[in-house]
Design a binder for these strands. Structure first.
Length: 279
DNA sequence: CACTGAGCCTGCTAGC
DNA sequence: TGCTAGCAGGCTCAGT
């Protein structure tokens, strides 16, 4: 599941080949991918647009277009945005998973594959994009995400800490993998009400979030099964995971107790019951 | 406000 | 071996 580090890696791998290129044509093969636009409108609005910049906001791959529109791609679970040079071997993806194909002015291709069809590609006007961007919480790797900010915000809500970390309006870019990893490192139980977390623990959580995300970016993301960068490469961060995806009963890498699996906010969650106490 | 559940989807796998 | 039921999960929306 692509989260902040994976999306950041996709942006970094797409930036060099894509910036400065003009989209000469686009084909939408699964209309819901571009909702609420219909495929004809989408195609018309991206055709002949030049990519001025590639940025990341939360889990969105953001392409600034010369038309003033902002093109965003959300990979959700199984989306892949793959760049292929003209004449190079095409991606090893089943053709039936192709949802959008963009042809560029140099005949290179940018293709959006998505097995489960959850991914979304949208076009926003400048004003719309400002609103969308403002609806997200702070970027955890930006300087305005401080431990003091986190502590003050935790104090203001009774919500359980894990669903709170997954709330993109609270903090942008964290998903199931890095929420579990950060809570494990900070030794916080995922069900703990936010307003009962001490200043000390909030500092630990802040540090854990930053280090877990930075490390994953340094390793080009975590590939469990589907994730690929813009060039089709897998991520190398999986060996750094402490708890996510570990079968119940696996020894805790820190204390040796048996890891436990629970469901929090309808999501699979792995914790060490000894390191992460509710009280 | 906090939380729950349904819906969107299909590939994979556990269990028969 | 072959089949099927159920799980996985980010996000949105409706309901309690």
């Amino acid at each position: 599941m692509p989260e902040l580090p994976e999306v950041e890696t996709v942006c970094r791998t797409l930036r060099e080949p894509l910036v400065g290129r003009t989209i000469s044509a686009a084909v939408v093969t699964w209309p819901r991918t571009v909702e609420p636009l219909d495929p004809g409108d989408f195609t018309a609005r991206v055709s002949d647009a030049t990519v001025d910049a590639i940025e990341r906001r939360a889990k969105l791959i953001v392409a600034r277009l010369s038309t003033g529109d902002t093109l965003t791609t959300h990979l959700r679970m199984t989306g892949k945005l793959l760049y292929t040079r003209h004449g190079a071997t095409p991606p090893e993806e089943p053709e039936r998973h192709l949802r959008i194909a963009y042809e560029l002015d140099n005949l290179d291709m940018l293709e959006f594959f998505d097995a489960r069809k959850f991914g979304r590609v949208r076009l926003h006007t400048a004003e719309e994009w400002d609103d969308v961007s403002a609806s997200y919480g702070p970027e955890p790797l930006d300087p305005d995400f401080t431990s003091d900010w986190l502590y003050q915000r935790l104090r203001a809500t009774t919500r359980q800490i894990k669903p709170l970390l997954l709330d993109q309006k609270f903090i942008a870019g964290i998903g199931n993998i890095y929420a579990d990893e950060a809570l494990f490192l900070a030794r916080i139980h995922p069900l703990k009400p936010a307003n009962t977390i001490s200043r000390r623990k909030a500092e630990a959580l802040h540090q854990a979030i930053v280090s877990v995300l930075s490390q994953a970016i340094a390793n080009a993301g975590t590939t469990l099964r589907d994730y690929r960068s813009g060039s089709g490469a897998i991520g190398m961060n999986k060996p750094n995971l402490n708890v996510y995806g570990a079968p119940p009963g696996t020894p805790c890498p820190r204390c040796g107790a048996r890891l436990k699996r629970l469901v929090v906010g309808q999501r699979g969650t792995t914790i060490c019951p000894r390191c992460q106490r509710l009280r």
